[in-house]
Design a binder for these strands. Structure first.
Length: 603
RNA sequence: GGGCUCGUGGUGCAGCCUGGUUAGCACACUGGACUGUCAAUCCAGAGGCCGCGGGUUCAAGUCCCGUCGAGCCCGCCA
């Protein structure tokens, strides 16, 4: 494949010793300049690499080159020459040659830069977003975005090889109940009515199954009006959305695990990837053992329930809490008994900052416990503690006490903190697991009502019978997540394709039959004309790339991300629109009172 | 909506805890020197309402209050 064009004969990453003695014409950005007064070097950069160009003093090109600012776009013509011995640069693939410039034209002079492209120093997020086009030139972000493209291409190829067909589904669609807030788009033709951007193509993919396409996938944009997090882009993100007909949960697992494993292996670059089948952890077990429904299995620590060790003991803080129904959880710090006192104090301080009650601990040596609360634990209790937790002499055991479900997350954070501080997190590894058997319903703590805990379209385990005969809070769904290194990559389910079960499922969550008809009429109707059992999932593309790129912030793998306030600082979105546009949409603004001295947030 | 952290020339940081000379360093920028560098080097220069407002004080980048902005977290995320 030749990348030569009307403006260049070669790319900046192409020339080698074999080209020496031939003419070449390059185009690119001035990455660096080294001016020796009568000899000047330009590192010319494009997406393919960097090539050193030499401009000799006294030539017309020299005067132009001296005045060049970094990041200007230039074109150079000249001869490819082998560098003199000792002058090669082993750091560059093109480092054995250079281009002796005979003509140089400036295509686009750059102003003084607000952020430096040729350096990896950190710049404020606001500057990076406002000048995203410059940030994208920088090596790290540039590499990430190219990686993203390659990952998506790999996913597409693997999905097609697995028998899936790619579809597009509407962007302007209808609002879906449950879930996050929708982004709404006003209709000009239908005053007072709105489209919603899809939070996911959920209903469309189920309709495609009902339409008999058997295996659907899409690199699908999803829109949710929710606040951002480091691993969650506000506004919009992409999913590998897929769905399969005539499948059980086992079939879905067996199909998608090799795809994900294959993609990760392809781009792991030396890092280990846990092979399928991925371990399965029930939702309940995940909360107790890992304190999270997205456990990081690179962390070898697990959480133990040690209520019985403290029940009726002299340590009244825990003993009394246990009587009230609280729970005590423990995490072992291997070899942590030797840590200095400050380690334990800092951990306790950290716990308080996390709005935990303090973090209790004992250290173990020769079957005896030491530490502030050790005196409350007799020999039997210490022995029991060691049996339950597997702790041995030289270890320390840390305790937190609270009600469920608070204690789960608190213990989970303690597990993470200890794993990190004790250096136990396995490096250079991708550890996958399935989280299975999610509860179908959960109780809203504020209102006391029962609602869907996840996807309302999931098939309840046990079907109609379970819904009719069991306590809803004990009913599990065929609902599953894929988790990798503590990041939730994907949520999926075997769907409920039976209208009778769907009405019952929604009835338990407080929806009347008419409500369900009104809101999901299209899909319900489809299920009355022959619907295959089906299920799928939707791994997050951005998060997959984030993991593979080794980034901890999702903006680093998105070419044009919004900031945490869901603003695009480069394109200045959202923005006000002219009154006449509002008028034809039949929209009148009712803005909140704004302080008169507050500056406008529009730049 | 709430919590924490941060805000100092174009940019990255120091100075703030413990108030007191001309606000320091690096990169970029401008001018000069230099024929083999590859983060070129050397010399010189320009560039700061220390986010904004108020307060304490003889004196505020520094202490206090408020406010605006950014990041992270909680809420939210079927």
């Amino acid at each position: 494949m030749s990348l030569s064009t009307g403006h260049r004969t070669h790319t900046c990453g192409e020339l080698r010793v074999t080209h020496a003695g031939t003419p070449a014409r390059l185009a690119g950005w001035v990455h660096r300049k080294r001016d020796h007064g009568n000899l000047l070097f330009i590192d010319l950069r494009d997406t393919y690499g960097v090539t050193q160009c030499v401009v000799a003093g006294g030539t017309p090109a020299f005067a132009t080159a001296e005045s060049l600012r970094l990041e200007s776009v230039i074109m150079v013509g000249g001869e490819v020459v082998r560098r003199t011995p000792g002058a090669e640069n082993p750091k560059l693939p093109t480092g054995e040659i250079e281009v002796a410039v005979s003509d140089l034209t400036v295509e686009s002079m750059a102003d003084t830069l607000p952020l430096q492209v040729n350096s990896d120093t950190e710049f404020p997020e606001e500057t990076r977003l406002r000048y995203r086009f410059l940030d994208l030139r920088r090596e790290r972000l540039h590499r990430n975005i190219v990686l993203r493209s390659r990952v998506i291409a790999s996913i597409r190829r693997r999905m097609i090889d697995a028998g899936f067909t790619e579809f597009q589904t509407p962007i302007l669609t209808s609002s879906s109940p449950e879930g996050a807030r929708d982004y709404l788009v006003p209709s000009r033709v239908h005053p007072g009515q709105f489209y919603a951007l899809p939070q996911a193509p959920q209903q469309f993919k189920q309709l495609l199954m009902t339409a008999g396409f058997d295996r659907y996938f899409q690199i699908a944009p999803c829109f949710r009006d929710e606040d951002g997090r480091a691993d969650r882009s506000p506004g919009e993100f992409y999913q590998l959305d897929f769905e399969m007909s005539f499948v059980t949960q086992e079939d879905v697992f067996a199909t998608i695990a090799p795809v994900l494993h294959g993609v990760f292996e392809e781009f792991a670059d030396g890092r280990a990837v846990s092979p399928p089948p991925f371990p399965r952890i029930t939702y309940d077990e995940a909360l107790v053992r890992y304190g999270s429904d997205k456990p990081d299995l690179r962390n070898p620590l697990v959480i133990h329930d040690v209520g019985e060790v403290f029940r009726g003991s002299g340590f009244s803080a825990f003993a009394q809490a246990l009587e009230r129904g609280d729970v005590v959880r423990a995490v072992v710090g291997p070899k942590a008994a030797a840590q200095p006192r400050s380690f334990f104090d800092k951990l306790n301080e950290w716990g308080r900052a996390q709005e935990m009650p303090g973090v209790g601990y004992v250290t173990l040596a020769d079957g005896a416990a030491k530490g502030p609360i050790a005196k409350f634990l007799d020999e039997t209790r210490v022995a029991r503690l060691m049996t339950i937790t597997g702790a041995a002499g030289g270890d320390a055991v840390f305790f937190v006490c609270a009600k469920r479900p608070t204690v789960d997350t608190v213990a989970g954070r303690l597990r993470t903190k200890l794993g990190e501080d004790l250096g136990l997190i396995e490096a250079s590894t991708f550890r996958f697991c399935w989280i299975v058997d999610f509860p179908m319903y959960e109780r809203d703590e504020e209102t006391g009502t029962i609602g869907f805990s996840h996807n309302p379209f999931s098939m309840p385990q046990g079907g109609l019978d379970a819904l009719e005969t069991r306590d809803p809070l004990t009913v599990k769904a065929y609902q599953y997540d894929i988790v990798c290194n503590g990041v939730e990559l994907s949520s999926g389910a075997i769907r409920n394709h039976r209208p009778d079960i769907m009405f019952k499922a929604f009835e338990i969550a407080g929806y009347r039959r008419e409500d369900v008809e009104a809101r999901f009429g299209g899909m319900l109707n489809a299920f009355r004309f022959g619907a295959p059992p089906h299920g799928g999932s939707a791994p997050g593309i951005d998060r997959i790339v984030m993991l593979l790129a080794g980034e901890t912030n999702i903006r680093e793998v998105i070419a044009f991300p919004m900031n945490q306030q869901a603003q695009d600082l480069l394109m200045q979105a959202p923005s006000e629109v002219p009154p006449e546009r509002l008028r034809e949409l039949h929209i009148r603004l009712a803005l909140p009172e704004r302080r008169a001295d507050a500056p406008s947030r529009q730049p």
